[in-house]
Design a protein around this nucleic acid. Structure first.
Lengths: 332, 332
DNA sequence: AACGTTCCCGTGAACGCTCACGGACGGAAG
DNA sequence: CTTCCGTCCGTGAGCGTTCACGGGAACGTT
């Protein structure tokens, strides 16, 4: 039966004593080093087994600093876009033999701050999405490599994986116009106070096609948010015949709302999203999207983190770009 | 420019020297302990800043063993079911202040072994999905708490979160029978050699309803796998009017294959899945499913890991069960 | 003047492990 | 018999941090 006392950890010394050897010999046995007789090795292993010995990762890490771990910060793992980014980052990290600590900040600035406060003491580099200001981030991560993804404003002090959807969005709008649409709305995201960069691309594309500004409605970052936003948009602007959404999740919400309100997509309403998530191919109708190579985001971020960590030739900002291009499906 | 020499890490001692104080005073300044003059505190902080000092997590962890980290092992993060499990586990761990190392084994026994070999030296507990034998798992995780999820066979040596879908599957089959279906097929999963437990439930339910065994086809764990499997099943058994799938991902594949081959769901073919993933509500038609509380899986696993870790009153196997129940939507 | 308090700060030890070194032992070569 | 080498094993040191303790200075109290 387990003793009531808070039992001390079993250390390498205990194993050594039990096996009648020195610490070093135990270390040799456990790490498959040479310079040890096979019989004693077995004896040591046996002693370790019966004692339930498990080496301390801290002590080991202190003396040989080989294992690298990176923190991956994601706003919402249930959002299929971030899931794909995370999966790609995980794979890239695994290929390097890195360990990945994942933090889901639940789309909350508060949780993000909490993550920032603890992450620096747990990892060798940080990769992911942050909404806080650069100085806040720097305050908590001072000294360790940080790679931001899809930063709203240009990142000055950190490396950042930029998303360039200007051409893609223009192609999307242009395609809608050629299909006869004249009144195109947008479902922007609602998280930030000011309109998003994607909205700017959208507005530019409209003027490039000789159209006036389209009506905009803010949407929560969820399917339900997209549904609500589309209904709101269509009641306020019934003349809208096509919508561009901040991302595919919102666009899928729009798809559902359209169906629910008896509109046929794309006949009564054309819908086009952004990101190009796999999920877009599963809904009905399949979603047109200004798609980007999502995997590239995660891979690039890890790649850059690696370069920052080793110090050799980090990628230039121009190389840290994922360009989006129009991918047409049945929703337009 | 960075010096060519492999520069030594800047330690607490360097900061102490730069600030003209002792290590302990530096420690006090950094950890917001008392017993330090505010002016010297600022001076130390300034010195640390300019030197780019960052405390070693290993040294810190060695002396104060407070931070706990758990390894979460997932076969495929892109599978929406595992995504939901992971999200729940992450949240539960965060609530405890734990850190989570995520490992995606890519549905590969080889990667799983690789994960097993490194995970033990990085975490305080392991939670997740494993396909290897218990002795293999134990060999690499000896001594640290392990909580398995949805283990195919009953786990003897480890805690395991069990999924009980017997009643749910029976309800599903019974519902299909009452709707007039007499020839019900199943799309089982293809990973293991023998039929799955869910197939056993399915077979039991059939006999309980007085039906003969239904035709079975193995499917890969993906939407595409589900598509292929349904086509194969229907060509071999054209009389099938309803299918039960091993999980929702495969069921969604069946939905798509049905649509593609001109069958209307549920009129020409009824489809019912397992798991109850959120994705099932987004496809068309929405997917009926033998649904379980997916979040509960992740939460329970973390909860049990916590109990095993602290040693107080681990949950009994009977409490580590997630029961599935029929959730009817438009696909039946 | 002697004493107790409070406020700061420093010193040794400890955490658990690996690395570099040295030493004992036995057998082969001179 | 000496010398040398290879095998096996132990000892001290060090990784970077915090904890427990002690001590000096400044201040007030009797």
């Amino acid at each position: 039966m387990p003793s009531g006392t808070e039992s001390r950890r079993v250390t390498i010394h205990d194993v050594a004593r039990a096996a009648g050897v020195s610490r070093q010999t135990v270390s040799r046995a456990l790490n498959d080093k040479g310079e040890i007789d096979d019989s004693t090795k077995q004896r040591v292993l046996e002693a370790a087994r019966t004692l339930g010995y498990r080496p301390s990762r801290f002590a080991r890490g202190l003396v040989r600093q080989d294992t690298i771990s990176v923190g991956l910060v994601i706003p919402d793992l249930l959002n299929p876009f971030f899931t794909e980014v995370a999966a790609a980052a995980l794979e890239a990290a695994r290929a390097r033999g890195w360990h990945v600590l994942v933090y889901d900040t639940a789309d909350s600035a508060q949780e993000e701050l909490g993550t920032l406060q603890v992450i620096a003491s747990q990892v060798d580099a940080v990769v992911g999405y942050f909404s806080r200001t650069e100085s806040e981030i720097e305050q908590w991560t001072r000294g360790l490599p940080v790679v931001l993804i899809d930063r709203a404003e240009d990142a000055e002090r950190f490396s950042s994986i930029r998303i360039d959807g200007r051409d893609g969005v223009r192609a999307a709008v242009s395609h809608l116009v050629q299909a006869g649409h004249r009144r195109i709305g947008m479902l922007d995201h609602a998280a930030r106070a000011e309109p998003s960069v994607r909205h700017a691309w959208f507005a530019d594309a409209l003027t490039a096609c000789g159209l006036d500004d389209g009506p905009v409605c803010r949407a929560e970052q969820s399917v339900e948010g997209g549904e609500r936003a589309l209904e709101h948009l269509l009641t306020q602007h019934p003349d809208v015949t096509a919508v561009f959404a901040f991302n595919d999740v919102i666009a899928i919400g729009a798809l559902r709302a359209a169906r629910r309100t008896g509109r046929l997509v794309p006949r009564d309403l054309a819908v086009i999203g952004f990101d190009g998530v796999t999920l877009g191919t599963l809904v009905e109708p399949p979603l047109s999207s200004v798609a980007l190579d999502i995997r590239r985001l995660g891979v690039l971020a890890v790649e850059q983190a690696a370069r920052l960590l080793t110090g050799d030739s980090p990628l230039a900002p121009d190389d840290l770009v994922a360009r989006a291009e129009l991918r047409l499906r049945a929703s337009t």
